[in-house]
Design a binder for these strands. Sequence first.
RNA 1: GCGCCUGUAGCUCAGUCGGAUAGAGCGAAUGCCUUCUAAGCAUUAGGUCGCAGGUUCGAUUCCUGCCAGGCGCGCCA
Length: 572
Amino acid sequence: MVKAATGSLAQMSESSAQTLVQTALLSALNRVIAAGELTAPLPTEINLDRPKNREHGDYATSVALALAKSAGMQPRAVAELIVKSLTENDLLTAAGISKVEIAGPGFINITLDTASQGAVVIEILKNAKKFGHGKWLSDKKINLEFVSANPTGPLHLGHTRWAAVGDALGRVLSAAGADVIREFYINDRGNQMDLFGASIRAVAIGKDRPEDGYHGEYIADLAAEISKSNPEFLKLSEDEAIAAFRDAGYKLQLKQQQSVLDNFGTHFDIWFSEKSLYEKDFFHHSLEKLKSQGHVFESENATWLRTTDFGDDKDRVIIKSDGSFAYFASDTAYYVNKRERGFNLCIYMVGADHHGYVGRLKAIAACAGDDPEINIEVLIGQMVKIMEGGEELKLSKRAGTIITLEELVEKVGVDAARYTLIRYPTDTPMVMDVDLLRKNTNENPVYYVQYAHARICAVLRNAKEFGIKYGADAYQAALLSHERERELIGLLAEFPRVVQGAAEMREPHRVARYAEELAGVYHRFYNDCRVLPLGDEKATELNSARATLCLATAQVISNALDLLGVSAPEKM
RNA sequence: GCGCCUGUAGCUCAGUCGGAUAGAGCGAAUGCCUUCUAAGCAUUAGGUCGCAGGUUCGAUUCCUGCCAGGCGCGCCA
């Protein structure tokens, strides 16, 4: 778990170029309003954008457009007042601004002076792995639940998307200062488990598996392994044998899932057993809690939760009329359990085929007396298809149904699989092209980004060999005034905002897209700005400054990839 | 029928808490390595942002309706 931001980080965010500019603008605006030249509410924050067009400067704000209406003035007139105030009150120099312009309908475009803009490189080197981290979500204690597969078979493609995205989201949330526990909910009770046990037993004794049982090849493997180490199981009565095979199979299968996830770089803090919700009478404790909120009722011999009180389509049965627990019973108890463990935000990542659950999950929170807008979030992952040789792969030898996580990794490797799954928003269905993921070209974004990192490492190895000094001590920000250098530095400075956005919107794909953009900007810089001296040239301070910029860029690419759980190789 | 998601370049997709001339990769055409990793870079070409209204200084972005596609609507788990 990542600790909350340190003092130096806090300092960093207070002194970053963006913040200095925002402060200056706010101050200028404040004075204009105080002087009575403008009648408008003072905004709490000035929205700074990076203009798409480089001619519009390093930052732009539309604050004048936003205020024009309430001020009853033309937007450009408001902008002029702000700019005049900036200049007359001598706020520009302190904020590191070299140029302010009013453009278009009333945008204020701001250009930083080179030295001030380049200062971020020092911050990156100083904070190293922590650059981009912050404490935006430090008030959140998050339970992040994902994958949560049944322990009755291998993990398939749908699980794989969450294994990658959930893990990345966990990293991003931690980087944003949240206290995050990653949890895997094991559905280790109910009919499915019994069917699983019956399927293994059937194979072990050479009978046909139940019609609605499990039919993958792995069942036979489990049956063979269990029969070999527990020959006595074969002599048990049917019921006893089913239970014995079920429990033994469960252990092996869970272990297999754990090892596959481990190999995939996805880590869980807690493996939570559904069955454990029924131990020590916890379930009844949770039911009492719900009852005390007044949304539990009895009808037709069953116990229900009136989820329709909170927008669900229909009320849900908790205890069936035969006295057994509905699956939903576990959902209610599990939610109560999470809250009692102190989480103020429970995030569920579920597949699109379960999106009908969103309403009832949110209703559970509301029925428990919580605010479903605050304490619970359900993220939906759309389907993943996989193509190879122009055709959709549907059958897995192993699982009997669809491609497994393990098979995907065998085909394309961990980095390519993870990266590809993460770089799309999860509410979009996606298609993975195995042939493309095997290519080592920039059709394959993961290589594009990794290559940029490896390339920088090569440059820095050479720099070292040539005795060129680089690092914070050898860095003179004012020397980096080339358009490509400014572009690169400007984008490096954006990284913390990207992390913040990815965390707040629960969209780790933003980090991947940023990494791709950064790699592209670096490649262009590399092409136009020679880092090392040519031939017999003597090394200059510019060589040192550029090499230092390279070092900072490698750090940020590495930090971004780290948030995705993808490696940043030094050589390729 | 009801609910959720999606519709952006020939293809795969970004962008959308409202902002200036809508982006990237691939595919197509043409250039750049006797000097840092060419797994790279540059130029050109390509668009009714599904359709129609509304909200306003401004809409691909927000609202409504429609069209098309995907998924879901159990006392299953």
